[in-house]
């Protein structure tokens, strides 16, 4: 355990500051320190994508990202997709019923959001699939998930993350 360090970052638009062991993975900071539990633990070693969040516009796996490295960064998590109305991705996933157990979905939604917000025009299905290759889905909902992201891409406002 390293010496505690103060870390501040913007999470879903809100400034948050916390004092943690800087080697603690961001996933644990989100879930245990900040009580943002929509980001899931799947493997703890960056191989399944369940813990994907967006850091400064890039989709990253939070389970092996040390908290010390997010100081001053902008972080988006699945909680930020909720709202009335919900984010177009959530709406499209509901419309397509693109889920079974749903455990992998927050990570997939964040990987998809980073992709769609980073591209000037709606990406091809193959491009979407490629962007999700770090995210595993075991229920076999792949086709519906790709359908939903294609639908969302048509409805999303383009531009960099706020």
């Amino acid at each position: 355990m390293s010496e505690l360090q103060e870390v501040s970052c913007r999470i879903n638009g809100k400034m948050r500051a916390f004092v943690v062991d800087p080697t603690m993975p961001l996933l644990h900071v989100l879930r245990e320190v900040l009580d943002l539990k929509a980001t899931r633990f799947g493997c703890g070693e960056g191989t399944c994508g369940a813990c994907t969040v967006i850091v400064d516009g890039q989709a990253v796996m939070s389970c092996d990202l040390p908290a010390g490295q997010v100081d001053g960064r902008r972080i988006e998590t699945a909680e930020g997709l909720d709202g009335d109305p919900p984010h177009p991705l959530v709406a499209a996933f509901l419309e397509n019923q693109a889920g079974q157990c749903g455990y992998c979905l927050p990570g997939i939604l964040m990987a998809a959001r980073a992709l769609l917000e980073g591209e000037p025009t709606p990406p091809s299905r193959a491009r979407i699939a490629e962007a999700l290759d770090g995210n595993l889905c075991r229920c076999g909902t792949h086709a519906r998930i790709l359908d939903a992201i294609e639908d969302a891409a048509k409805h999303m406002n383009r531009g960099p993350l706020a």
């Binding site: 929509a38 909720d82 919900p86 019923q97 979905l105 939604l109």
Partner: peptide, 16 residues
């Protein structure tokens, strides 16, 4: 539609 799907996406429905 599935009753529990949205909660799976943005909420905390699991025993975890």
């Amino acid at each position: 539609p599935r009753m529990d799907l949205k909660e799976c996406m943005v909420g905390t429905p699991f025993v975890h």
